[in-house]
Amino acid sequence: MDSVERRRKMDLSLILNRCKSGDALAWEALVRRFQGRIYGVAVHYVGNPEDARDLAQEVFVRIYENLETCTDAGLFLPWLIRITRNACIDHLRRRKARAHGKDVALDQIAEPADSRDTPEQQWTDNSRKRLIHRALQELTELNREMILLKEIQGMQLDEIASLLKVPLGTVKSRSNRARIELAQKVMALSCER
């Protein structure tokens, strides 16, 4: 069992309880479990690996300080994404460049290598991800955020509605429109190649 699977199999509520009681080992486990998620959200929002790294660290500090306020392990991930999103939006406002993030150089970002995949499979997957990432950058900010929250991070529609403060029906229709637009962009980019 590799470290990624081991991290995922640990009981989150147990980790949270031990973190609250001041267990440094549990806190390290929590950081290792969610660092990829937080860093991934930050990269998609700010589009810059260095800024995303600093933001992810800032988010973990906030989580550490406010860990007592999270009482339900089931709501931990939406809470995490909410904090990350708020930090990213604050950062983008400060940078005054929220409209267009820079292209992310995926080569610079270390991705987890799955030992089960062959090198050819990994290369195909990475090239496909690059294509999708390019298509994502061509979406509007609203559609990109919808894809990030629902399709990539797997948040529920009601969680997204609560996060973005929009009605549930609006989230569903926006999400479907964003998916269609992304699929059309991917098709167009595939044809260009």
Partner: peptide, 12 residues
Amino acid sequence: ECLPGMAEIEPD
């Protein structure tokens, strides 16, 4: 099938 796999990007 692809998008959920982009949820996590491991930092250094």
